[in-house]
Write a protein that binds this DNA or RNA. Sequence first.
DNA 1: ATATCTTAGTTTATTCGATAGACAAACAAA
DNA 2: TTTGTTTGTCTATCGAATAAACTAAGATAT
Lengths: 383, 383
Amino acid sequence: METMSWNQQIVKKNNKALVLQLIMEKEPISRADIAQISGLHKATVSSLVNELLEESLIFESGPGESSGGRRPVILHFNKSAGYAVGIDIGVNYVLCVLTDLNGNIIIEKNQSVKRTPYPAIMTIIQSMIQSIIDEMPVSKYGIVGIGVGVPGIVNIQGSILLAPNLGWSNIQLKKDLEELFHVPVIIENEANAGAFGEQQFGAGQDFQNILYISAGIGIGVGIILNKELYQGKNGFSGEMGHMIIDLNGKPCSCGSRGCWEAYASENALLELADSDSLESLIELAENGDATAQRLFEEIGTYLGYGINNIINTFNPDQVILGNRLALAREWIEQPIRTTIENHTLTHHQNEMHLNFPKLGKYSTSLGVSAFVVEKFIKEEVNS
Amino acid sequence: METMSWNQQIVKKNNKALVLQLIMEKEPISRADIAQISGLHKATVSSLVNELLEESLIFESGPGESSGGRRPVILHFNKSAGYAVGIDIGVNYVLCVLTDLNGNIIIEKNQSVKRTPYPAIMTIIQSMIQSIIDEMPVSKYGIVGIGVGVPGIVNIQGSILLAPNLGWSNIQLKKDLEELFHVPVIIENEANAGAFGEQQFGAGQDFQNILYISAGIGIGVGIILNKELYQGKNGFSGEMGHMIIDLNGKPCSCGSRGCWEAYASENALLELADSDSLESLIELAENGDATAQRLFEEIGTYLGYGINNIINTFNPDQVILGNRLALAREWIEQPIRTTIENHTLTHHQNEMHLNFPKLGKYSTSLGVSAFVVEKFIKEEVNS
DNA sequence: ATATCTTAGTTTATTCGATAGACAAACAAA
DNA sequence: TTTGTTTGTCTATCGAATAAACTAAGATAT
């Protein structure tokens, strides 16, 4: 157990983290502004800022605009002090990005894959990371970590217990990558990562309690409460694709019946359609195909049922509908909203925001990259 | 906003709270033990303990057993430094308890009610509290607050927005009670209160993430994550009675269809039965009535569907099935467990505990009383 | 019975980080 | 120029935790 008691060192670490956080969020900013906002004394801010300068986590960019007196020294977060690798393993692709510490994509590697045995995927990941390392700009801290988003059940220790759509079980990706590259590795469920990505950089930046629905081949949900990812006892939270919405309904691959994802996922959509891809169905709908439009309406309605359950359960600030089905926003948004209006408790609908991702296909990769950066910053400040 | 920055005073308050918490949890305990457990220096502990002694929040009871040297001075939490009132407003009863600061019931008032207009209930509550005040023992702090659990939607500010089974809407009970008795008043949803009660004093003491299902006339759920009550944006979390488990199912009083509580609540049970009370149905089942037994099995199965959704969503340490239907534990427990085994994801079932309340009908009243005590302690330590 | 070791708790001095207030630097406005 | 303002630093002080010495009160060995 961490020590339970508090002392001055902990105060200092937290204040230093606070100063850095303010610089990250509000740059350009002066020492005086930080003192103003944080409530810390300006001398304290000065001292902490100097430490951060020595660690190259921030830098000065000369004098700013005077507001009637001496001109302030403008501070910036040094987003290029190091870089993070974010990897999104999908069922038929691997997306790998290198981001700076602000989540800006510096390098991007994309590869589509046909089959997904672990060794094959591992080879792809390894060569992607290696080529990124070869291409990346020089920096003080280099690669500060690797994050991986996986469509499956990942425990808190980072083991992939089950990823049915990849055909994986009990995979020690974290250990393998750490042995290869000797940097911290974080493995997360892709819905959790997507939720965090949107909260940090995308549609969820202004909200406290966010439910991010990853509606792809299956459905997973990332739960952010009070701005923090909720993982559950073992890290398995958010398996709402297997929430029963129809007692005597369709059998699901999980062995249960009437699971949400048997009705409202991309798989469910394609089962109902003659088409073999979401993209072609969207094209049909755009060309006025009534059958395709009716299909999307049906899927939207089913999505709405599950979202109703989410809203009544969590009373969230925001629900984000992400992953593949978000591509069909134009066709599914209205049925979802109508379903909510017709079913969800009135009080819960007030001030509830239903949004779509701002990061597009990057939600997950930027999310895991953000986990890595967060961990790096935390450890750097506390050392 | 509270100040964002930290300083020595905050350290002191937290350490003082920690010392008090250890005394509350582990009494009898010595200064040396506290230093050992907390990691604080013994001099620090001594100083904080002395402050707590002066505030009468703890007391000494003389020397304890030697462990090879000087005998320690034994410290105790002064559970009688003040008292809290906890009120549970049900659809046909009002239960009112006075507890000490450890949640022991000192005085209990119980009254069954036929009709529930707010003025009538208010009169009952007022006279109950007044007679408790007349009877209660003298103490340093007197009544430290009043807590009320209500079957309805309560916002974070303590307004009762809607309590359909009482026929209430937009009731300012908090304001009214504060004006009458001039002590802090906390209003909470009864499921939230029940969850907190069981977590503090009952079945949930060893767990971090607890979902407490209040299965009565309707169904509500209290959500405790990382040992803290999760309330949602407005305080409306846990309205899982209106989670859709059957797409095209029965209409519900809320205007939706297929809501969980339309299948698995006491109301749902009684609709299916010829009987007019849960108690008489239980008696029938105990006397071997196969129809009654089959009914309970059905309700248990329906409860299981909803609990499946809860487990897959939250990956909790524990689910507690509380309120009225817990009385039928003997008849519903097995069908619930069977349903979970047949439907819930395997990984989520491991280490998941399904339990029943230890506090019986007192879960809610002790829960609100505990809210009051927690608030009092927090404010007392920080002053 | 005496000396020695152990444990409990207090007292005194020290350390460390935040803070108050004085100060210098740099600028605006009169 | 002069005056006032804002920014940032420097110095002294404060407050809480801590280390270490100390007192108190027991156990244990000889």
